[in-house]
């Protein structure tokens, strides 16, 4: 006798509706490891989408504490967290686990410069949810060197950007930068000579653009892990929520970029 189906059983599987997306490799997603660097606006939204998408192994890194001005865009933060100046990474990890109790979200209260990406377990995807160029370049370099896909987000008010870096092919984040990026970096360093965080401009930020950019970051990771890298953004998406513009723009390998020093100088594309 064939096995009888149980009515309502499919609604007991929290990922049932995800599994109905034919190309989505849910089996791979639940086994993949993610490193989320930055537990602020983008970090909150990225972790939220990761746990709801079925990811079970997430490490979230941030050294900062919650302040009240974070509360206009950070879904996991509460008034009392700001009053108690709790660590961002710890709060994100704890609240994300409430969304998906089987997810293991590990907080790391540390500067990204102190994180060793080559130590095990190695992440399958790295998310840049940062607020400065120096930290982005550090993460880009280490991810590229280790061959780990790096998905970087950035926002400013109603504008945003998602950059997808898929080593060993194609340009990296640094390839798309120019003197204006390095001037901003120098301006920050020149304030203390040591730490990039002293001069920290208060960049306009709100939740709708943060949500859009973080959602795109996670969606690109879903494609990468489902074997759909060829459908990923190539290489950067610029979003302007005020003027309703969303454009995919290509970059090219910079022969002077240290990430590609062993390559012949050419405009190679992935």
């Amino acid at each position: 006798m064939s096995e009888a189906i149980k009515l309502g059983e499919i609604d007991e599987d929290r990922l049932d509706r995800s599994r109905r997306i034919g190309w989505l490799d849910v089996g791979k997603i639940v086994k993949s490891r993610c490193l989320v660097v930055g537990a602020g606006a983008l970090g909150n939204e990225v972790v939220k989408s990761l746990v709801l998408s079925g990811f079970k192994e997430i490490v979230v890194v941030d050294m900062d504490r919650i302040v009240r001005s974070n509360l206009n865009r950070c879904v996991f933060f509460r008034e009392e967290d700001a009053e108690s100046r709790l660590q961002k990474a710890s709060v994100v990890a704890a609240r994300a686990a409430e969304l998906s109790p089987t997810a293991r979200v590990t907080p790391v209260v540390s500067s990204i410069q102190d994180i060793d990406l080559s130590s095990s377990p190695r992440p399958d995807v790295v998310f840049g949810c940062l607020d400065n160029i120096a930290a982005r370049l550090h993460l880009n370099a280490h991810s590229y060197h280790l061959g780990i896909p790096y998905i970087d987000g950035g926002t400013n008010g109603f504008a945003g950007r998602v950059h997808v870096v898929l080593p060993p092919e194609g340009p990296c984040l640094q390839c798309g930068m120019n003197r204006s990026h390095f001037r901003i970096m120098e301006k920050r360093h020149s304030c203390t000579g040591i730490e990039a965080s002293f001069y920290e401009p208060k960049v306009p930020a709100e939740i709708t653009t943060t949500s859009v950019i973080a959602a795109i970051q996670v969606r690109e990771a879903l494609k990468v892990l489902s074997g759909k890298s060829e459908d990923c953004i190539r290489h950067v998406a610029h979003y302007d929520g005020l003027r309703n513009r969303f454009e995919i723009l290509e970059t090219s390998i910079d022969p002077g970029c240290p990430m590609h020093s062993r390559m012949e100088p050419h405009d190679s594309q992935r």
Binding site: I133, N156, C175, G176, M177, N178, R179, S180, H181, R183, I184, K187, V236, E247, I248, L249, E250, T251, S252, D254
Partner: peptide, 15 residues
């Protein structure tokens, strides 16, 4: 003061 990029069609030009 900020970072800017320059596009020509669908390509971002290298600085």
């Amino acid at each position: 003061a900020g970072a800017y990029v320059l596009r020509r069609g669908k390509r971002l030009l290298r600085g």
